[in-house]
Amino acid sequence: MSKYTKRFDGRKLDEARKIKAAVGIIPNADGSAMFSFGDTIAIAAVYGPKVMHPQHAQNPEKGTLRVNYDMLTFSVTERKRPGPNRRSQEISKVTGWALEPVVMLEDFPNTVVDVHITIIQANASTRCAGINAAALALAHAGIPMRELVSSVSVGKLDKTIVVDVIKEEEDYEEGEGATDIAMSFTSNSGKLTHLQIDGKISAKELKEAVETGKNACREIYELQKKTLKGVGEK
């Protein structure tokens, strides 16, 4: 039996935190969105397509997707030193790879689409909130896309698989300890575009975790869809 039977915040094992989304929150951006899992809040702004500078970075075959992820100093309990760091650079890259398969920038050679993801409040799963917000913002900016991307984190605490981990769960140490798996799925074809594992997990358990994550992403997609369809209704 697994030692982790009841979650810290009383949620069901396959229950995500309260999810919220909004688009058009940044008037000066070409597209923008907010996405939150409980008290993890991410905002994303999309600029472009615009001419790529420096010129040597231009791709004459298709446009480039450039993602920048950053956490604000006050987003975590201990003040985060401002500016890019190893972690944020990694997440920027990985978020770009998660979104790359769905954006269609073939019609915009030599251009760049800038995505700026900012975490204004963090309690684990920030990269997932960031990817969800970025997918919404890209759609809102009118970028041609195959479909949307939804992202969720799945955790394995001792032997229990849970959806949408929080900080306390990430730090769980009893039994087999905590494994944090961030994953992203395309909305219609249900393909995996991003999978990151931090911790130990068996192949069988991983399959189970991916299946759990896929189901959780459906709910997230429904919210993303509802948010985009609600534009202009006031």
Partner: peptide, 22 residues
């Protein structure tokens, strides 16, 4: 649909009218 916008049907042609973007 490849992009976000309004669906528009005319003479057996379906297109999406953009609402945002550059």
């Amino acid at each position: 649909a490849s992009r976000f916008g309004l669906r528009d049907e005319q003479n057996k042609l379906v297109k999406v009218i953009p609402l945002s973007g550059v």
